[in-house]
Amino acid sequence: MKARKIMVTGASQGIGKALVEHFLALGDTVIGVSRSKSDIAAENYHHYSADVALEADAKRVFANVKKQVGALDVLINNAGIARMNAFALTPVDNVQEIMNTNFMGTFIFCQKAINLLRKSPNARIINLSTVAVPLNLAGEAAYAASKSAVETLTRIMAKELGSFGITCNAIGPSPIATQLISGVGEEKINKLIQQQAIKKMAKVEDVTNLVDFYLNPNSHMVSGQVIYLGGIS
């Protein structure tokens, strides 16, 4: 398999870091983006410290990626934040912060990536959503709404970018033991898992598996789809 050029946002921890390590092991060139620095050191790994919600940061990242790597085959928008709170008590500042990172960050990075992706024979955009969307999860109003926006964005981009040969899909992981849900109580996680058809915690490898499916050149007819883990639909 020819080495690919893959950008992953939210690359310094959790699912993002696991994806970076997965692609590096396959021999791909990986561009990681996160607000913090990365502890990954590899010849074909390039890290950019940036806030995905800031257009100026995105412009800087893509201008440098163009100089450094020339083109992109894949963009994975994984950067995301969550703040659990009752809707009635959620500070508006928190909502803004969640929407900025989860939705605006995804929107901006997708838009800036188009020109680099257009040159790829198997161009892919994969956005990370959550099972909180189909479950309409109480206590996750802002987070689920931001990811709902990401899902709609994904479906519309699939239509608009199809003529450029870019497929756009999303993955909605069920609970995985990462930093993102570290503040959520065990009882709440267990209750959530009981709503799944497959009643167990997912692993980052389950996300990697879906990513590999979307990236497979044979998946060129798959676009505008959201696949949830755990048997949730």
Binding site: A63, I114, N115, R118, E160, S163, F164
Partner: peptide
Amino acid sequence: MALVALLMDIEDALQ
């Protein structure tokens, strides 16, 4: 969509 592609190429060249 072809116009969008053209404008992206022009923006790219200007950048």
